[in-house]
Design a protein around this nucleic acid. Structure first.
Lengths: 219, 219
DNA sequence: CAAATTTGTTAGAATAGTCTAACAAAATAT
DNA sequence: ATATTTTGTTAGACTATTCTAACAAATTTG
């Protein structure tokens, strides 16, 4: 069984390799707040266990086994976040830190019970998909708000950044998952967008924000 | 902040010193499944942090600070057990292992929310008192069933053994907290007792079992 | 392309928590 | 009160995870 430390490396590798399917040692070290030699030696350890593939001076690639292990940890993380929000009345900005600890608990029944109690949710409070028990992840292929055009209507389906700061910003603007937006205009100058939603007739969202809001466009 | 290992030593010391207020190195080592040298060196570490007092060849005594720290971990353990039983529909025999892990989570709000959701319970699913937020424990001073006399009526209020095996035994006999017992007779031969409860007209309980059932006698 | 920068590696050391072997003190039992 | 047993201690070693310093490879830049 992987240690908590190893689990954290797997999770970091998984998250970093979303795009290329591989991650550099320096990104890994950065993500985990450890030195490069530390990341380097842990990668060797993971490789010995068949969890990743690695050659000197090459990026690290998770094996199928490693991907599955990582996905199952992420499953526990996201189920926990959802449970905290749905069943324990936490705000979506409060749950990451707690889930970061709970995800390392070894108690299959505990997480299955959460899952049942919530009616088997497919996404977490930030719209990220919850991997299934086999570690498979349903891809959502959402667009970011930046890609939408004036005149379109869309609903916020997920976030590409779930930091407490960004969530606090969204809270302050009454933006949440499910919020329906009408895109009024887009500044070609700074890529900021003016939108309407709920009670708000005209709100301006910076490019930074638009990029982080993942939407489903109404047909 | 104490490591998980240190927390486990504190908890073990707390449980072992219930009677004398002190614990031997060998009992501590035994309780934790480590060697005596290991327990010995950890005791020195805890002492340096002001969590216990210790002199060579003498038993270990928790300081007030150490007692409080231990009680707060036990609080998290027992709140978790109660939450699992009351809110997540686990059996009382399933919760110890999970609580053993959850008790190390650092998230005050998580445990406070559990506490609130349950209406601030004072005992865990096995009848053991839940320490308050200051680490104070309300003593229940219960008698064991062995101390009761034929003719008396009593209610099971707690257990002095919460092992899965004992709990399975109690489940198989439909005995639980709150079960009201009429004591019919006691064998002076083997100290076993014959009792009536629920649908059962006559059930025989061995001395071992009677000692582990903590009761409140009806006036 | 050569120089500079970034990235990655090796070597060596530190800390936490654990062990076994050997010995010493305390407690128990003749 | 001595011998035996139990309990406790010290010394030394091992693994996991981390670090810094020094160097090497790869990449980027002028």
């Amino acid at each position: 069984m992987a240690s908590i430390t190893e689990e954290n490396y797997l999770k970091a590798l998984f998250n970093l390799s979303n795009n290329q399917g591989e991650a550099s040692i320096s990104d890994l070290a950065n993500q985990l707040g450890v030195s490069m030699p530390t990341a380097n030696s842990m990668v060797k350890t993971l490789q010995k266990q068949g969890l990743c593939r690695y050659e000197k001076y090459k990026p690290v690639v998770l094996t199928e086994q490693g991907k599955k292990a990582a996905a199952l940890i992420i499953r526990k993380h996201r189920l926990t976040e959802m449970f905290l929000v749905n069943k324990m009345d936490f705000g979506w900005e409060e749950v990451h830190e707690i889930a970061e600890q709970v995800e390392h608990i070894h108690a299959p029944k505990f997480f299955e019970r959460m899952d049942e109690m919530m009616g088997f949710p497919t996404v977490d409070p930030h719209g990220s998909p919850i991997p299934d028990k086999q570690g498979r992840i349903q891809e959502l292929h959402l667009k970011s708000l930046s890609e939408a055009a004036p005149g379109q209507e869309a609903v916020i389906a997920a976030l590409s950044d779930s930091s407490a700061e960004f969530l606090a910003y969204l809270n302050s603007r009454q933006l949440s998952l499910g919020t329906e937006l009408k895109i009024l205009s887009k500044e070609s100058f700074d890529q900021s967008m003016t939108v309407a939603y709920g009670e708000k007739e005209r709100e301006s969202l910076s490019q930074k924000v638009c990029e982080k809001l993942l939407i489903r466009i109404f047909d």
